[in-house]
């Protein structure tokens, strides 16, 4: 019962953050609300006995990505002042029906699958040590690949984000 209440609280926090992030006018508020949704999800992970993933979620999403989004929002601040920005907000009809349809389908499929009605495995724990061992044994190749990918993404982001050379300055 306690778990149920905790789950519901966490789920409510997450959903509220997500909805707020998608609906608020102010972009900074949106970013903060998204961070809230990510934090709610991290709590649910903890509740599901995935401590390591929960903390990783908290660190990366709330700590890194949300901050990155806030920085981007601040850097592209002039965008919302553009003419036509007001009209752009009033286009919910383009997204909500599709989102609702997808949601309906997903829920229908979840409800329609009898195999999903099961109990959780008892005594599940995923210690950090075991995760580390797995990463160094079975998942060493994906780990290295991810490292490569992140390095490439880092370099790419730096190159893209660099200021243009002075020659093409007048264009910008």
């Amino acid at each position: 019962m306690l778990n149920e209440i905790a789950f519901l609280l966490c789920a409510a926090l997450t959903l509220a953050g997500a909805v707020a992030a998608m609906m608020l006018r102010n972009l900074v508020h949106c970013a903060l609300c998204a961070a809230g949704a990510f934090a709610g999800l991290a709590a649910i992970y903890l509740q599901l006995d995935a401590e390591f993933v929960g903390f990783a979620q908290l660190l990366i999403y709330v700590g890194a990505i949300a901050i990155l989004i806030v920085f981007t929002v601040l850097l592209t601040r002039g965008a919302e002042i553009q003419p036509g920005a007001a009209s752009s907000a009033s286009s919910w009809w383009k997204g909500v029906p599709v989102g609702a349809l997808v949601l309906a389908c997903l829920i229908w499929s979840i409800m329609a699958s009898p195999s999903l009605v099961r109990l959780p495995s008892p005594n599940v724990h995923a210690p950090v040590k075991q995760i580390g061992e797995q990463l160094m044994n079975q998942f060493v190749m994906p780990l290295e690949t991810i490292g490569l990918l992140l390095t490439a993404a880092l370099l790419g982001a730096v190159v893209i984000g660099l200021r243009e050379p002075r020659t093409s300055e007048p264009n910008s």
Binding site: M22, L27, A31, V73, S91, V98, L103, L106, I110
Partner: peptide
């Protein structure tokens, strides 16, 4: 919960104009 989260994300991604959103 996951489906709801997905639906909200999708609706937002489709509806909002700002690239960050």
């Amino acid at each position: 919960l996951s489906a709801l989260l997905f639906g909200i994300g999708l609706a937002g991604a489709l509806a909002r104009r700002n690239a960050v959103l």
